[in-house]
Design a protein around this nucleic acid. Structure first.
Length: 715
DNA sequence: AGGCAAGGGGTTTTT
DNA sequence: CCCCTTGCCT
């Protein structure tokens, strides 16, 4: 017992031992949250004798789930395979595999990702004769999924979007069901439907889950919240960990108010604050606190560190982006060669993916090994999605979506028109595309029909092969028989693509090993589910290289040295978030998350002049920089030059441009509509430096004005 | 059906 | 500026 507790502080112990009733742990950055979760689980199992499979622990990513499993396994030396430690989505998939037939789906349903949803929405728009220029499929997809999560939202939409949703959503849902597919939202929504409709099933899970734990609670959305409430039994043994200051996923529905909602719904909740930080130096922590303090709507925390004061936070300002990238490269070399850092202990973080490019160029030139995390996920690659589509169609010929994807990949002379005609025919006959191929009275011409029949025979014969072949051989057979292998030979990227498919093969083989199931179809179903729910984070990581990634991707990680780059108004915070206070607060939390990733050294960099969309723009310092107390900062680059020439009071002004109140931050760019107190409405023609050219109505004409004059206001 | 040129648009993103 | 999509032409 002591072993599980001895290296914990008082609050951590309290969180581990408070097993009964609702508990909420507010866990500041670096406060040992994962440690608490794993110890708590070990305590339940080892000291209280709770069977491991009767604890439900929900995380946000597979990575977090795996980490928790590994750590519990290591603490207790037990197998974790039966444990319910998983993401919301895999938990739901596991429940639905048991019971989804009650909702009219087949238990061998397949899971599609957001790109697939977009594709389907696009096709439906076409079928409904809606001009895709009117609504972008990608944007409509977001709304379709929102409405699925909360049908009452449809009333909030205005025409024409509302009309589109009213047509597209039911058609989309019908197609999914016909193809026996579910999207990520369905996983949650259908599980809720199941638990609500079938009290005996709810009872079954209430009996099973004696203890429920939820990690990263600040990032739950409303559907996930409802799901947790449904799964917690009358004992109310629910433990949530979160930190509202680290909530950075509001843009996809995360609702910070769920923390407060939790307190209302579980009035007897015990609240524990984890305030001791084990990660960062005090200086880094103080600077981070300076920034997050700017947010109004939060519970004040008092994070403290035992890691000593450490180095000041460096703020480097360059003239051009080249200065900035070279400075970062230089500092990395210094850290590695002078301070004995490993490359893998260093991260470069940015707000938008596009920023990585300039750094990649410089790092390449300067021979700094690096990796860019999370651009195109392995599973989103075309060749992987194609092979998955083949496998899905073989498993379920009624999966018309998968059929559409690969019927002409490689080219079989089956064009869009043929598929369109087949689609209409299938619709009329109330059958899937696959079955419609062999129906009598086909309206299709002889030639296209015979091509389709050849394709149908190919799929059927592969299905037979699946039963008698090993998976490895089967994939090879599939590649050859479908002509995919041959197609890759004429592809510039063919070698890489083939390698990726071989990688997929290995993964199938490994997943297969981890389950013992006699039925091949069940095995393949499971393997495909794993693939659907997995993501980039599970890809093999390179060793000892500098990591470049977005601030979002950095969540939950830590590095000895962190560079947050492009700290400029417009870049970070982003232009678009500066208009709404709510969005701006989320940007600030993002800055906070980024800063608190650093253990020893934190560098904030930017440049005055940045090339953006082919134009040179003059940028101001990010407002977040001016929020940091100057005592925690060491100024470098342009800052330093200025500070040497001027008096200390001037130096302060550099960091707090707001003190000169005659100007405002008008983040104008070409095309923006503005309002001028004297000249009225106008449109920005160009921006250069602190000047801009604006076209006003006839009586005023075109004028060149100071960009940041307070008379100008963006509308 | 397929290849090339012009055009639009360019947060963040796990599952 | 650069990438991806679209549309037109062959």
């Amino acid at each position: 017992m002591d072993k599980l507790l001895k290296d914990l502080n008082e609050s951590q112990k309290e969180a581990v031992l408070a097993t009964e009733g609702p508990v909420m742990a507010i866990a500041g950055a670096g406060s040992g949250k994962t440690r608490v979760l794993t110890r708590r689980m070990a305590h339940l199992i080892f000291n209280l004798g709770v069977p491991a499979h009767r604890i439900l622990a929900i995380t946000f990513t597979n990575k977090a789930a795996n980490e928790m499993k590994t750590r519990v396994a290591k603490l207790l030396g037990i197998s974790t395979s039966q444990m319910w430690v998983s993401t919301f989505h895999s938990m739901c998939a596991r429940i639905l595999r048991e019971h989804i037939d009650l909702l009219g789906y087949d238990r061998r349903f397949q899971i599609i990702d957001d790109d697939d949803v977009t594709q389907m929405v696009k096709v439906i728009l076409k079928q409904l004769n809606i001009d895709p220029k009117m609504v972008k499929p990608k944007m409509l997809k977001t709304h379709v999924l929102n409405v699925k999560a909360d049908p009452s939202l449809i009333d909030d939409y205005d025409e024409p979007l509302r009309g589109y949703l009213n047509h597209v959503f039911p058609a989309y849902q019908k197609q999914l069901k016909n193809s026996n597919l579910v999207d990520f939202e369905d996983l949650l929504v259908l599980t809720i439907e199941l638990l609500k409709k079938y009290p005996e099933i709810k009872k079954q899970y209430h009996g099973l889950f004696q203890y429920v734990m939820v990690d990263e609670f600040q990032d739950t959305n409303n559907v996930q919240y409802d799901l947790i409430r449904l799964l917690v039994n009358e004992q109310n043994n629910v433990f949530i960990v979160g930190d509202e200051d680290q909530s950075i996923y509001a843009f996809r529905g995360a609702n910070i108010d769920n923390i407060r909602k939790f307190e209302r719904n579980f009035p007897k909740v015990k609240r524990i604050l984890l305030e001791q930080n084990y990660r960062s130096t005090n200086t880094i922590l103080k600077a981070s606190n300076d920034v997050i303090r700017g947010n109004r709507n939060r519970i004040e925390k008092n994070l403290f560190s035992t890691q000593g004061e450490g180095e000041p936070v460096t703020f480097f300002k360059g003239y051009t982006y080249r200065d900035e990238t070279e400075y970062v490269a230089e500092m990395i070399r210094e850290l590695v060669f002078r301070h004995n850092y490993q490359y893998e202990e260093i991260a470069v973080l940015y707000r938008a993916n596009a920023t990585s490019r300039a750094f990649e160029d410089t790092f390449m030139q300067k021979h700094i090994p690096y990796q860019v995390v999370g651009n195109t996920s392995f599973f989103k690659r075309k060749e992987i999605k194609d092979i998955v589509a083949y496998l899905r169609l073989i498993l379920n010929p009624n999966d018309s979506y998968s059929l559409t994807r690969i019927v002409n990949e490689p080219r079989r002379g089956i064009g869009a028109k043929t598929i369109e005609r087949l689609s209409i025919f299938a619709d009329k006959e109330q059958d899937s595309l696959f079955e419609a191929i062999s129906l009598p009275n086909s309206p299709l011409g002889k030639a296209p029909l015979s091509k389709l029949k050849t394709f149908r025979d190919l799929i059927l014969s592969l299905k037979e092969k699946l039963d008698v072949m090993e998976f490895n051989d089967f994939i090879d057979e599939l590649l050859v028989r479908t002509g995919y292998r041959e197609m890759l030979r004429y592809d510039d990227m063919g070698d890489v693509r083939y390698e990726n498919i071989m990688e997929l093969k290995t993964m199938i083989q490994e997943t297969k090993k981890s389950i013992e199931d006699a039925d091949k179809i069940d095995v393949l179903t499971y393997v495909l589910e794993e693939i659907a729910l997995k993501s980039a984070e599970d890809e093999k990581k390179e060793t000892n290289v500098v990591t470049l990634m977005t601030l979002h991707a950095a969540k939950g990680l830590e590095f000895k040295a962190v560079f947050i780059v492009a700290c400029e108004q417009g870049m970070f915070p982003l232009y678009r978030s500066m208009e709404s206070p709510k969005d701006l607060e989320e940007e600030r939390r993002l800055m906070y998350v980024g800063m608190t990733r650093a253990m020893e050294r934190l560098y904030l960099t930017n440049c005055r002049q940045r090339q953006l969309y082919g134009e040179t723009q003059m940028h101001q310092d990010s407002m977040f920089l001016s929020e940091i107390n100057i005592n925690h900062l060491k100024l470098e680059g342009l800052n330093k030059a200025v500070s040497r020439e001027h008096t200390p009071s001037k130096k302060r002004r550099l960091l707090t441009p707001k003190s000169t109140l005659e100007t405002v931050d008008n983040d104008l760019s070409k095309g923006d509509r503005i309002n001028h107190t004297a000249f009225g409405r106008g449109v920005v023609i160009s921006v250069s430096g602190d000047q801009c050219v604006i076209a006003f109505a006839k009586e005023h004409g075109i004028k060149t004005l100071l960009k940041n004059h307070k008379a100008i206001k963006k509308v």
